Amino acid sequence: MDSQMKLEFEKSKLGDKDERYEAYHNILKATDQVVDWAYDVWNQLIEDLTHKDPHQRSRAAQYLANLAKSDPEMRILKDLPKLWEVTKDEKFVTARHSLQSIWKVGIAGSPQKEMVMTFMVDRFKNGTDEKNYTLIRNDILQNMRYLYEHFNDEQIKQTAMDLIDTVDDKKYNKKYKDIWK
């Protein structure tokens, strides 16, 4: 990892509000591509998933999701349950930002995609007791849409449609179907 990227991670944690925001975007932009330094920050990010600051938890989750494509050792398969926990964070905005980025783990490869899909299907089916579950379901279906667009895998679309068909509320059934138009 070069010194500039180290500085971005430092600013992401310790900078003022504007510096943290700029560093956050710079890190996400850098990790949109495969990088060779993922393991330089991996363990710290795993640790930060349980940081006392919800912003740190959210950023760590989003960075890890982006870094999954730079993970030839497939550590994410072992660490995904820890990352998934942040999608259920007590701070809803932290949970939602984490959930909205989880699909990026799935584009790292077939085992990652299968694991992410399993987690999302289970949450869709069994998460109706959660606060804001209709938004969570919306995010899950949007994640599936992104995975479908990436892989062009009809099974992903069929899974989403099957889940939508279980929704009795006409308003949400229509809203969820609109994601797939």
Rank of each mutant, 00 (worst) to 15 (best):
T166R: 06
H51E: 13
H51W: 01
N66S: 12
W37Y: 15
T94N: 07
Q158A: 10
K170T: 13
E47H: 09
M1D: 10
W84C: 02
I156W: 10
E19L: 15
Q100R: 06
T118A: 15
L99W: 00
R123G: 04
L135W: 09
D169I: 09
W180C: 06
Y176K: 06
I136Q: 08
I107V: 12
N43S: 13
K17M: 10
I76Y: 02
E10S: 13
T118G: 14
K177G: 08
D36L: 07
I76T: 00
Q4C: 13
V105P: 04
L14N: 15
E47T: 14
Y133N: 07
W37M: 08
Q56V: 15
G106V: 05
L163N: 11
Y148E: 03
K157G: 06
W42P: 02
T128G: 06
M144H: 04
S98N: 08
K181W: 06
D18S: 15
K78L: 02
G15S: 12
K52D: 11
L45W: 02
R96K: 07
W37P: 00
Y24V: 09
D122C: 02
Q44P: 04
Y148G: 00
Y176V: 01
D53C: 05
Y24C: 12
R137N: 14
Y176R: 11
K29M: 07
N143F: 11
K69L: 12
T50H: 03
D16E: 10
L99I: 11
G127R: 07
R59Q: 10
V116I: 11
E8C: 15
K13E: 14
D48G: 03
N132M: 13
I46N: 00
K104H: 12
R20V: 06
L7V: 07
P81A: 09
S98Y: 04
Q142L: 13
Q100G: 13
A95S: 11
L14I: 05
T134S: 13
K113Y: 11
R96Q: 12
A68N: 06
L147A: 03
E114A: 07
D36F: 10
R145F: 09
T118S: 10
I102F: 05
K29Q: 13
V116E: 06
K104S: 08
A60K: 05
M144E: 01
Y133L: 05
Y24E: 15
V34Q: 08
M144P: 09
K157Q: 07
N132I: 03
L45F: 03
N173F: 09
I27E: 01
R75W: 05
L67P: 00
E90L: 10
L147Q: 04
Q4T: 15
A68Y: 00
M117S: 05
D169N: 13
D162E: 15
H55T: 09
W180H: 02
K82S: 12
Q112E: 15
I140T: 04
M5F: 14
N138M: 15
Q155M: 09
D89H: 08
P72I: 05
